[in-house]
Amino acid sequence: MIKIQKALAIGFMAMSINLGYGCKNEPKNEKQILLVQRVEPNKKPNKRTVKIALLLDTSNSMDGLINQAKSQLWDIVNEFTRAKCGNETRPDLQIALYQYGNDDLSYREGYIQQVLNFSSDLDEISKKLFSLTTNGGEEYCGEVIQTSLKQLEWGKNPDNLRIIFIAGNEPFTQGRLNYKDAVTNAKENDVVVNTIFCGNYEQGIETEWKRGAQLTGGEYMAIDHNREVVHINTPYDDIIIQLNSKLNKTYISYGAMASEYEEKQASQDENAMSIGYGVAIKRAVSKSSRLYNNKSWDLVDASADDDFSLEKVEKESLPEELKGKSNQEIEKYINGKREERERIQAEIAEINKKREIYIAENQKENTQGELESVMLSAIKKQAAQKNYTWD
C-alpha cells in the first residue's frame, strides 16, 4: 500500500510539472526545475513548432496560384522570424507541400501527391514549389486533406500549431471521400483547416469552401489568384542583393552532397530573381534570419549545435581549403566565417528596416500579395489562441 501511495505521489508531481509549462509560461519555481532535471535528465525542453501543410490545386487554371506561392513564400518566412512563444523562445517553422487535381498524377492516388514532407529546409521548400506545373484534372479536397493527415507526422505537443491551407477553385465536395469526414478527423487531431477559394467570395461559399473551414474553427478566404504583386523599388534594393552574394561566400560546404547543396542554394537565388527583383530581396532577407539554417551541409551552422564535434567529420568530405589542416586551424576558419556571416546578416537586417519604412511611406493600396496576406492573417489569429505573439 505504501509503494502504491509513493507511486501516485510521484505521478501527481510529474503531472504538476507538465502543467506548469505552456507556450507562454516559464517553470514556476526552482524546485520544479531541479525535479525536471532529476526525472528526465537526458531530455531537452520541447521547442515549439509551427507546422503548415500547403495543399495546392495544380489543375489547368491554377498557374496564378502557383506563382503567388513561389513569390510569397519569403514574405511568410520573414514574418515568422518575428514570432515569439514566451518571453524569449522563438518557434521553429516546418512546411509540407501537396499538389492535387492534376492529370499527371496517379488516378489510384486520387490525383494527389506529397511533394515535400514537413521540412525546415527553406531552399528545398523553394525548389519543390518551383517544380510544380499545372495540368487539367479532378480536384478532391476531402481526399487530399485526409491524405495529409495520414502521411504527415503532426505530433502531439499541445503547444504546437498545426495548420492546413488548402487552395483551389472547384467545388469542395468533389471526390469519393466526404470532406466533412476529413475535416472532422483534422479537428480531432488539433489540426486547423483553412480554405482559400481562388475566385469569387460568394461562389466559394456556395461550393462549401467556407463550411470546410468552419468545421475546424479555421478561416475561409477568397483571393484573386491571377493578381500580380507590385514591387516597390527602394534605394536599398541593390545593397541587399550585393550583401546576399557576400553572404553565400560564408558557407563552408561539407559531406558527400556538398556541391549539390551549394548548387541548390544558388539555383533558388536564381529562381527568386526569375519571379522578380522584389522576391530576390525578400529571399535575401530570409537568408539573414534564424530560420535559414543549413547545418546538414554547412560547417558554420553545424558547429553551432551543442553536440557538434569536428572529430566526427570525415576529413575527406571537407572543402579543399581545409584538407590537411589541424582541428585547431579548421575551428579558427569556421569561427572567422561565422563572424563574417553574422556581420553581413546584421547589415541586411538593418538595411531592410530602412527598406520597409520606405515601402510603408510610398506604397499604395492593394500592393500586398493575395495569398500571403490571407495566410498570415489566419496564422496570427490561430497562433494567438496558443499564446504565440509577434514582435
Rank of each mutant, 00 (worst) to 15 (best):
Q268M: 09
K364N: 06
S326W: 08
E228F: 02
I17P: 07
G204C: 02
S148H: 02
L56E: 01
N271C: 07
N29S: 09
N248H: 05
T184Q: 13
A266V: 08
Q68L: 03
E139Q: 05
A272Q: 06
P41W: 04
S120F: 07
E316C: 12
A222R: 09
T133P: 01
G64L: 05
M273T: 06
G20M: 15
N366V: 06
V193G: 07
E350R: 13
C85W: 13
N60V: 12
V39D: 09
T147C: 08
G136N: 14
D104A: 14
L291V: 00
S373I: 00
V192E: 09
E316A: 15
F80V: 00
I17K: 10
Q32P: 03
D159I: 00
E350L: 15
P158R: 11
Y107F: 08
S296C: 07
E365G: 01
E321W: 01
I2D: 11
L310I: 14
T58Q: 06
Q265C: 04
L371W: 07
S245W: 03
K127M: 03
E138A: 08
V229R: 08
I196P: 02
G218P: 02
G136V: 12
R290F: 00
K128M: 07
Y98N: 00
A186G: 07
R108D: 07
R211Q: 14
A304D: 15
E356Y: 00
N29V: 01
E314F: 11
E30R: 12
N102Y: 14
S253R: 06
L73R: 04
Q32S: 07
I252D: 06
Q113P: 12
E321N: 13
T134E: 09
L129N: 11
L215A: 09
Q151F: 04
N194I: 04
E316L: 12
N200T: 07
E170V: 00
E139D: 08
K24G: 06
L247R: 03
E139G: 03
G369W: 03
T389G: 11
M15L: 15
V230E: 06
K180M: 14
V374G: 02
Y100C: 04
E331H: 10
K295D: 10
A256W: 13
I66Q: 10
Q114E: 06
M273F: 09
G137F: 15
A222S: 10
T207Y: 12
Q214Y: 08
I125H: 11
K6C: 11
A284S: 01
P235D: 03
D391P: 08
G204F: 05
A9M: 15
A284L: 03
K84F: 13
L371K: 05
K28Y: 05
Y388N: 11
K180Q: 15
F118A: 10
L376M: 09
L73Y: 09
L247D: 00
N60Y: 11
Q174T: 02
V77Q: 10
G276V: 04
S61H: 11
Q146S: 05
S61T: 13
R283V: 00
V279S: 02
S126R: 00
L132G: 14
Y277K: 08
Y277I: 02
R108I: 05
P91D: 08
I252H: 09
K31N: 10
S286N: 04
A222E: 01
I125D: 00
V230R: 09
N244V: 01
K380P: 05
Y100F: 05
K51I: 12
D298R: 05
Q37M: 01
Q146K: 03
